[in-house]
Amino acid sequence: MLLVRLSVLLVALALLNGCEQTDAPPLDQQLYVWQRQWTSAHDAALQDSRADFSTLRVLALQAFPQAGWSRARVDPALLKRDGRPLIAVIRLDGQLKSLDQDDVTTHIQQVLSEWQGQGLTLSGVEIDHDAGSARLPAYREFLTHLRAALPAALPLSITALPAWLDSPELPALLATVDSSVLQVHAVSDPRRGLFDPDQARKWVNAWSLITSKPFYLALPAYGVALLPGASGAPVVESEVPVGRAGQRRELLADPLQLSALTAELRADPPTHLAGLIWFRLPLVGDRRAWSLNTLRAVARGDSLDSRLSLKLIAQDDLYDISVSNQGNLDNAWPERVTLAVRGCDGADALAGYALQQSPDLLTFTRLRDGRIPAGEQRAIGWARCAHIDQGGSNVHP
């Protein structure tokens, strides 16, 4: 009887171990590098992102209906030193009337050859083309042509739109490439918002039922502004300023929403989902992107919080007044900051704030919106006072 019980126990342990071995691997995390003009800020951004993001998908080449072809001015030395797998992204604007297979393929081959000549080793090519569903057969023919022209060992992927889910042409299109990247942000009327997590999850589940190959999910870590357009449709301003006056309505992807969605995907990954790709690598001074601290925290699945506190730097009786964000979540400028003071003979607010002064209180009130990135601070004013009681001062979110 003892031997029988021991045998049963060993079988049960084996089954448990087998279950553990079939657990889904953690979702891969990648980054889009989408700046058309590289700067010295890319160096620190790449170095600081290496620990959390496995692969770089770098904008290489764009084609527009009127402007024609444009190459992104990347820094090959930085990419070579970075050493992560590198995927060149070719953006073919959705407003192009048609794709000249030979011409487009020639331009792609030229830029790939140029990158390889600069010492870069490519791990793949991604085609980003917002084709309407009616044009998917022609797009499939182009991809078939391109696939034959590229080295057989070089993976080919496409950026894909949720709107294609209703097309009977989608399975044949996906059969021409090695993987797809489902974009779930900025795919609807911008006036309805930048991103809807509930709708995104539905699209992901539907995509997993159609594709038989690995796919990735492109997620937003940025914002845009909407300006009134002459035709009634809004003009979208993103990382490149639009030379147009008018009231801007800012839209920003919510890190808390994205954190909740990625937690669901980790806990219950849809079939064939291979990883997440974040748009875009943030640079210092990029006011419409999450800070890298916030992006890394969301990618890791860390708990998110902002910890705003008053920071005073004193030189004799002159105080520089700032608000510091010591958390990992970017935060809006505080609505109001009050300082308990004594013996002030001068004070002023910096741009974005207004100052109200009484003998024992300074009140800085926000005039416009802005964000304090995680791990950074924002100066709001100065004061020349005999004393500022930091313990009696408050930051009001």
Rank of each mutant, 00 (worst) to 15 (best):
V341R: 14
A263V: 02
E20P: 11
S231P: 02
P76I: 02
A60S: 12
W34V: 00
V204A: 13
N394G: 06
F64A: 12
D23R: 15
S40D: 10
E126R: 09
A134G: 09
V323W: 07
K97E: 11
N293V: 14
E141L: 12
R140F: 00
T55I: 04
V184M: 08
Q62A: 14
V235C: 09
H107V: 01
L56W: 10
N328Q: 02
A152N: 12
T121P: 00
A67G: 11
Q47A: 15
V341G: 12
P269W: 05
S98R: 14
P228Q: 13
A45Y: 02
Q110D: 11
R36A: 08
L79E: 03
P220S: 04
A347N: 09
V104Q: 07
E239H: 15
F64N: 12
R371Y: 10
L56C: 10
Y353C: 02
L112R: 00
S188L: 14
P155A: 11
R81W: 08
Q29K: 11
Q390W: 10
H145G: 06
Q47V: 13
P76H: 03
H145T: 04
P214Q: 10
V4W: 14
G68E: 09
L86K: 06
N325S: 12
A63F: 11
G370E: 06
V58A: 02
T363Y: 09
D268I: 12
S167V: 08
G392T: 01
G392I: 04
G117W: 04
S291K: 02
V58L: 01
L6D: 03
V125T: 06
R371P: 00
A374S: 03
T294I: 03
I108M: 08
L146V: 05
P334L: 07
R371I: 07
L78H: 06
L182T: 04
A253K: 08
V58K: 00
T271I: 15
N17C: 15
G94V: 01
S123P: 05
P282W: 00
A12S: 07
V177W: 01
P85V: 03
A314S: 15
A200K: 10
L15G: 13
L92F: 03
L219P: 00
S303F: 09
G243N: 14
L31H: 02
A383Q: 03
P151N: 03
W34P: 00
Q101I: 04
D100L: 11
A149D: 04
A253H: 08
L3F: 06
P26W: 09
L355N: 05
G246M: 04
P270W: 09
D196Q: 12
K80W: 09
D128P: 06
P151I: 02
L59C: 07
N293H: 13
A14E: 11
W203Q: 08
P334Q: 06
R296I: 04
E237S: 10
N205C: 11
